[in-house]
């Protein structure tokens, strides 16, 4: 949908820089991940507003963590060994739409990363992961922040193992990324790489006027999300 909205030159300049800033924000996240600093990422880059903290979410193929308290406990609480651990995330192919009201933005990127961890026998396991990275951003007093983030995994290669031998469909037990994902607050088969991108999740952002949860990259934006309602 297109909206007939007119902006002044100054508003256009701000919008230009807003798109640049949200790309910058998601790029900065990669360097926190490269150092295994998940707590620092949440502290510095994610929403601070108390109401937005309640609805912040992080999703992977197997569901969502919801609320900053959950993210701080489960996402930032993941074990990152002090020795023999390394990672490099390369984020690219950004596609961003800034809401016409200027309060939020949505972006779809791609992340190709490697992550190595030592084994007890003195060797190491390295995985290479390729997957979509989708984000709802929101402008707070302190600037743009991450609100809902979805990090999908398309391909998960273990270096040194023939990829052709990976079973299809791949059991979670054989998937190093699945093993690392914490117990989700909203369990959901969000993304099934066995079927590629045909299901269009996470969807490419379209031009939009204002944020709506059902169009978000949080759980409510997933087409298979069913809100639990308790009748008394």
């Amino acid at each position: 949908m297109r909206y007939n909205v007119h902006y002044t030159d100054e508003e256009n300049a701000v919008r230009l820089m807003d798109v640049e800033t949200v790309k910058d924000l998601l790029a900065r996240r990669a360097y926190y991940l490269d150092g295994g600093d998940y707590a620092g990422e949440l502290r510095d880059l994610w929403v601070q507003d108390p109401e937005k903290r309640k609805t912040a979410s992080y999703g992977e193929n197997w569901g969502y963590l919801v609320g900053m308290e959950s993210l701080e406990k489960k996402y930032a609480g993941r074990n990152v060994p002090e020795t023999g651990w390394g990672a490099v995330h390369t984020v690219n192919t950004g596609h961003v739409h800034l809401a016409y009201d200027g309060k939020t933005a949505r972006g779809l990127f791609y992340d190709v990363y490697e992550c190595s961890a030592s084994r007890p026998d003195g060797t190491a396991e390295t995985i290479v992961v390729c997957g979509p990275l989708a984000c709802d951003f929101i402008k707070e007093d302190g600037g743009w922040k991450i609100w809902h983030l979805f990090q999908g995994a398309d391909h998960v290669f273990t270096v040194g193992e023939p990829y052709a031998e990976v079973p299809i469909p791949r059991p979670d037990a054989s998937n190093p990324v699945a093993r690392e994902f914490p117990e989700p607050d909203v369990p959901l088969k969000t993304y099934d790489p066995d079927y590629g991108w045909a299901d269009n999740y996470p969807p490419m952002p379209d031009p939009y006027y204002t944020f709506r949860p059902e169009e978000s990259y949080g759980p409510e934006g997933h087409p298979d999300y069913v809100k639990e309602v308790t009748f008394s």
Partner: peptide, 8 residues
């Protein structure tokens, strides 16, 4: 495998 965790 022996390197201490190192920030970017």
């Amino acid at each position: 495998p022996n390197r201490p965790r190192t920030p970017a």
